[in-house]
Design a protein around this nucleic acid. Structure first.
Lengths: 128, 128
DNA sequence: GCTTGACTTCGAGTGCACTCGAAGTCATAC
DNA sequence: GTATGACTTCGAGTGCACTCGAAGTCAAGC
């Protein structure tokens, strides 16, 4: 399907651009993770605005840092309430940030252990 | 239960030392992830040697870098076959290493996006 | 005007990694 | 000698995030 003059994208175009599957995009929407209602064409097919796509990209960033669906839903719920909740949203992201940094540190430590093991194998080869 | 004179540890001691639950330790064993058979006391209670514990620690490093159980099982299967498979094990770890580095990079990129968003909230507060 | 194919909704199914619970055993404490 | 509590096995249950499939709709191409 070709891009609409209004710059709206179909679900498969958004899937292509975000690396998520159309199934996953629908699933996220069902789970209440979209910031605003996704528009529909007369055919009832979804039409994503640039804002929608920008949000989906950020949402997938949150997912790739292992934020649970439920926490993202909280964030969205806050965001929909408007400016009054921006402090709470900032707190939520800061807390998440801390968790991500911890995760990164643990992964790096674990990677170092893997590297040590690999080095052992290299040594073994040299001594063989 | 107190530590045995032979330096063998009970499952709950290993749980304490590794941060895994006793349930998880049994589960890993059932899944064939232990390098060698875990010893038993006359009571049929597990007794972990230092080597067992060292392996459990490494195993949990592999898990915390998201190596699937099935891949760990492959590694273990190779390791049990002895020195002849050390090249294959090295390859397996190198491949895993690549994946971990990619994961780390993606998480860091995503973290940067979260940071940008947090910075936006800070700005909002300043302008308020 | 019929075919094609991309979409729709909805509920169900999948895969993974635990996590739990029941029923039983055993050694130590009292 | 019995109560306690840490263990045992085994199968089943859970939680999460998708992922799929069926049945239907609709617009565009021929």
């Amino acid at each position: 399907m070709t891009t609409n003059t209004a710059g709206l994208l179909t679900i498969s175009e958004v899937a292509d651009r975000t690396g998520l599957s159309a199934h996953t995009l629908r699933y996220y929407e069902r789970e209440g993770l979209m910031l605003r209602e996704v528009g529909r064409a007369s055919s009832s097919h979804r039409r994503y605005s640039d804002q929608d796509v920008t949000w989906v990209v950020f949402l997938s960033r949150l997912r790739s840092t292992a934020m649970p669906i439920a926490r993202i839903r909280e964030y969205v719920t806050l965001a929909r309430k408007g400016d009054a909740t921006s402090g709470a949203r900032r707190e939520l992201l800061l807390l998440h940030r801390m968790r991500v940094v911890e995760q990164l540190e643990e992964m790096q430590r674990s990677l170092a252990a893997v590297d040590v093991k690999i080095a052992m194998y290299e040594e073994k080869v040299e001594n063989a």
